[in-house]
C-alpha cells in the first residue's frame, strides 16, 4: 500500500514532465500532493502516530488545494499564454527522467539495506522525485513552471522525511510548511512583477546581468 502510493507520487512527477500546458501541470502537481498526503496518512495509520496525520492533512490541504488555486488565479490574472515551452522536447524529457529514476535507485542502494522494511523503496522513489523536480526547474523556462518544479522537489523531500523517519518533529514540519507557503507567495509576487516588466513569464529574457 505504502509502496504503491509512493510509486504514484513518482508517477505524478513523470506526468508533470509530460505536461505541455500549464493548467495541466498545476493539476498534476495537485494530484501528486494528494497522493503524498494519502501516503502520509497510511504511514500514520500503520505507525499509530497522530502527528503524521497533521502532516497528511496539511499536505493535502495546502499543496493539493490552496497552492494550485493560487497558481490558477495568478495565471488567470496575468492572462499569459498557457504553453509550457520546454527547452527539451517532451519525449526526450521523459527519457531523461527515466534515467534519473534509475540513477536514484543506484545512489540509494547502499543506504536501503539498513532502512525500515515497510518503507525500503520509498527513499529511492523520493530521491527520484527530487531529481525530476530539479530537472523540471532547469528545463522549463516559464517562471511558474520553475516554481512548480521546486514544489515537486519539496514533495520528494517530504516523502523521504515521512518514509525514512516517520516524520520530523512536528514544529519543524509546520515551519517547513509555512516556509513553502510563503516562498510560493513571494515567487507569485515576483512572477507578477516579471510579467509587468518583461511582458512575459519567460525567464530566458533575463540575460541583462553578466560579467
Amino acid at each position: 500500500m505504502i509502496n504503491g502510493l509512493a510509486a504514484l507520487v513518482l508517477l505524478g512527477a513523470f506526468a508533470a514532465v509530460s505536461c505541455s500546458r500549464m493548467p495541466a501541470l498545476v493539476r498534476t502537481f495537485a494530484f501528486q500532493s494528494i497522493a503524498l498526503g494519502a501516503l502520509a496518512a497510511c504511514v500514520a495509520y500503520f505507525t499509530d502516530s497522530p502527528q503524521i496525520y497533521v502532516v497528511a492533512v496539511l499536505t493535502i490541504g495546502l499543496k493539493g488545494f490552496v497552492i494550485p488555486r493560487m497558481f490558477s488565479q495568478i495565471m488567470n490574472r496575468i492572462k499569459v499564454e498557457k504553453e509550457v515551452d520546454p527547452l527539451l522536447s517532451i519525449p526526450s524529457s521523459l527519457l531523461v527522467s527515466g534515467g534519473l529514476a534509475v540513477l536514484a535507485y543506484y545512489i540509494t542502494e547502499p543506504l536501503i539495506t539498513h532502512g525500515e522494511p515497510i518503507t525500503r523503496n520509498a527513499l529511492a522513489l523520493s530521491l527520484a522525485v527530487v531529481l525530476i523536480g530539479f530537472f523540471i526547474m532547469i528545463s522549463r523556462r516559464k517562471a511558474i513552471t520553475q516554481v512548480v518544479g521546486l514544489l515537486i522537489m519539496e514533495n520528494g523531500l517530504f516523502m523521504a522525511a515521512i518514509s525514512l523517519t516517520y516524520g520530523m518533529p512536528l514544529i519543524v514540519e509546520l515551519g517547513i510548511f509555512f516556509d513553502v507557503l510563503v516562498a510560493v507567495l513571494i515567487m507569485g509576487v515576483f512572477a507578477f512583477r516579471i510579467n509587468n516588466t518583461f511582458d512575459s513569464l519567460d525567464t530566458s529574457f533575463m540575460r541583462r546581468l553578466r560579467d
Binding site: 517562471a143 516579471i194 516588466t197 518583461f198 546581468l209
Partner: peptide, 15 residues
C-alpha cells in the same frame, strides 16, 4: 528598485 535588472537578480536569488 523594481527595475528589470533588480527583478532578474531577485528571481535568480530566490530560485
Amino acid at each position: 528598485y523594481n527595475k528589470d535588472t533588480s527583478l532578474e537578480a531577485a528571481w535568480k536569488y530566490i530560485i
